[in-house]
Design a protein around this nucleic acid. Structure first.
Lengths: 226, 226
DNA sequence: ACAAAAGTGTTGTGTATACACCCATGG
DNA sequence: CCATGGGTGTATACACAACACTTTTGT
């Protein structure tokens, strides 16, 4: 905490959100085409200045920025890390609090038309991002991979109600593993009481209809890995 | 990232370090007696303003602040989280990047005299800290507890060379568990190749002399828990 | 009846915990 | 030779991954 007089440098303080979802079986990141310099016309993470007068804290900044740019609210979002330095922004020394947000693709369908500035790019194709956004994206994917193994984070990539096969597929995509054993996966979900069945079945294509489930808690972290 | 014009609010940007060590078998935090208002005379986390002209990034701020206030360098340090809001500092809206630092007590002995402003307080007695430092301290202890279970973080509370009994005791303190099984603990250290013996033995009190060891890597993170 | 997808059971392999025991050293 | 702490072995229970098998639905 400050011991000396407040220095009169004007600092650039921003929040940047890595919005992740699943598109055609692959993890994808929401990018916003920049209107202003620097890097006008390029796709960048969804971010904006912290407004000390409006924002309760940087968490509120992140939520506000997401709302302003997508028109949607209620995303799952958590703080990731803070990035800073003189070179990450060509305008000078800057500091950015980065956030990880997850959403089902279904929520975004209205936002993705031709007119929209939001685009979804598979994370392994999102190279050469402006600023240090490549580094921030890598941190976000790393967080999802590591924390996803012992939490219900990946379920936030699905709608509230889902089948167990969908959930397993989502875990495989989020964690980047080729195959999770069906039987083990289900047994652990039950033992840890992570899910509960809801009324209704669903058949994706021909075949037996699947039971629908939802999470019992918004988010759970546990000891064992899935 | 910024889409609009840079707002002309002047933001208070600081770094705060939670310096942890072990004193008489308990986890303790290094506090600095504040010289200036607000909260002059009270013990607070070790922190200071980010200097955009001097600091490469906030990591450098944290390292510089630790060096300035303790006279020592080379601490283990990692970013924890960022805290912000209008009320955490009575002077107005502020943002602070918090860091976790670990050190063996031995390194601090010269810094702890009567003349020094640094004091070590057991973490469970450090109540009513100024600003939101209580919350930051809790986050730091939480990080040590959770990450310590599957990494060599707690070893940073010991000097470079240590006995296995010392290491086990340190893990127990850092993780807040009453008893780790001696045999299991040692077997895992070996299987994961985390440690290597160095020349020399040590006898703490009467009894057999203990082999000395050091870490094979600066810091390791692994799958299994200890 | 067959294909496709949902859902369950079983078995071997490995990892963890508890506990018992042996070893070296100082008084 | 006994107390103290260092160091090792083993048995039991538990968790995990692999795989085989049964059930339900659409065509």
């Amino acid at each position: 905490m400050p011991q000396t007089v407040h220095p009169d440098h004007k600092q650039i303080v921003t929040a940047d959100v890595v919005l992740l979802t699943v598109v055609e079986g692959r993890l994808a990141v929401g990018l916003l085409t920049r209107e202003n310099e620097p890097f006008a016309g390029r796709g960048a993470l969804i971010g904006g200045y912290v407004h000390a007068d409006k924002d309760r804290d940087t968490d509120a900044t992140a939520a506000r920025v997401l709302r302003d740019k997508t028109g949607l609210e209620g995303f799952f979002i958590e703080q990731l890390a803070t990035f800073s330095g003189p070179k990450r922004d060509p305008r000078g020394w800057s500091i950015s609090v980065a956030y990880l947000a997850l959403t089902p693709l279904q929520r975004l369908t209205n936002v993705l038309g031709e007119a929209s500035r939001v685009s979804l790019v598979p994370v392994d194709q999102a190279r050469d991002l402006p600023f240090d956004h490549g580094e921030i994206l890598a941190a976000a994917v790393g967080r999802l991979r590591s924390k996803g193994a012992y939490s219900t984070l990946p379920a936030r990539l699905l709608p509230e109600v889902f089948t167990l096969t969908e959930l397993q597929a989502t875990y495989q995509i989020a964690l980047g593993v080729p195959r999770i054993d069906k039987s083990s996966f289900r047994r652990k979900l039950n033992e840890l009481a992570l899910i509960e069945p809801v009324e209704g079945l669903r058949a994706e294509t021909g075949g037996r209809q699947a039971q629908l489930y939802r999470l019992r808690q918004e988010i759970s972290v546990f000891e064992r890995r899935l």
